[in-house]
Simulated scan of single mutants.
Amino acid sequence: MVEPLRPPPRSARDDVLTYIKTLHGHQHHDQLVAVRSLFTWAKQNGLIFRNPAGRIKVGQYEYAMLQPLVPVQVDRSVAVATTPATRLILTLVAVHAARVAQIVTFMLNDTDLGNRRRTIAGRVRPPDDLTTQRLLDWLEHRHRRWPNTANLHPLINNQTANTSSRAGSHWISAAMRGQDATLERLRVDRQLEEARVKGPDPLHLAEDFGLDEKTAMRYADSARAQLPQAAEQPSQ
């Protein structure tokens, strides 16, 4: 009597593939990266003889389409910016797409009020009345509050006014924490707006905001996908 063929025993690699197939999008990418890292560590430390995930390719991560903020979300963040400091921070992000890490390293000599020029993260930004006014408001408040400070960082607080240290990122971001339009989302929205208004040109975005090639292309692709949608919407 001929015995029926039995399926080959499942391997650890089969188990990994079965699990990964149940995931999608960023979860698929992140979990596979984590599994590969775990098995690589186990093999390097002699816990296993073969890495079952070693030949499974992670592949390129497919980012979700960037979506613009809606006006009510922006309005709520504007409403909570009630101090000269938070209004300046909000302007640096919403107008110039400055990162929090760039704001905390902003120096007094990065601003030339006479020529209305300011440098953020090594890039000279074009003058605009709103940023100039917000900066003047803050510097006037700063002078009244800490007239003898020698700190060369424009944005200072009670902890840094009598030192040369910069303010912390947590303090910079505090006012917008919990809002839909956080500083990071406002920064992304500003760059996406540029791509929508000026055209989805990754070279322009890379030059204007100092983006790397892949990031600039992501903004351009997102803006390009939304332009037809905007054209189809009836005018108010």
Rank of each mutant, 00 (worst) to 15 (best):
V80H: 02
L186D: 10
R190D: 12
A97C: 07
S173A: 14
G168N: 13
D208L: 11
Q67L: 13
V74S: 03
V33L: 07
V197E: 12
W171D: 06
V70M: 13
N115Y: 09
P126K: 14
S37R: 14
A167R: 14
L135H: 08
A64S: 14
R145A: 13
H26S: 15
P127I: 14
N157R: 10
R10D: 15
T82N: 10
D15T: 08
R55N: 13
P154T: 11
N109P: 02
V70Y: 08
A206N: 02
P228I: 08
R55W: 05
P147I: 07
F106A: 03
I48W: 02
L183Q: 06
A97M: 09
D128L: 07
P228G: 09
R10Y: 05
R87M: 11
A53V: 01
P9F: 06
D75G: 12
T215F: 01
I120W: 05
L152Y: 00
N45R: 11
T132H: 13
T149M: 03
T40R: 15
D110P: 06
S165H: 13
V80D: 02
H204G: 01
R166F: 07
R218L: 12
D221W: 05
V95L: 09
L135M: 05
P52W: 07
T82G: 00
A181I: 03
L183I: 07
E232C: 04
K43P: 00
R134G: 01
L227F: 07
K198L: 05
T40M: 01
A195T: 10
E213L: 11
R177K: 15
Q236W: 13
A98K: 01
V197R: 14
G46L: 02
A174D: 12
R36Q: 12
H29S: 02
P234W: 06
W171G: 03
A98F: 04
D30N: 14
W41I: 08
M176G: 04
V188A: 07
I172Q: 09
S235E: 14
A161F: 05
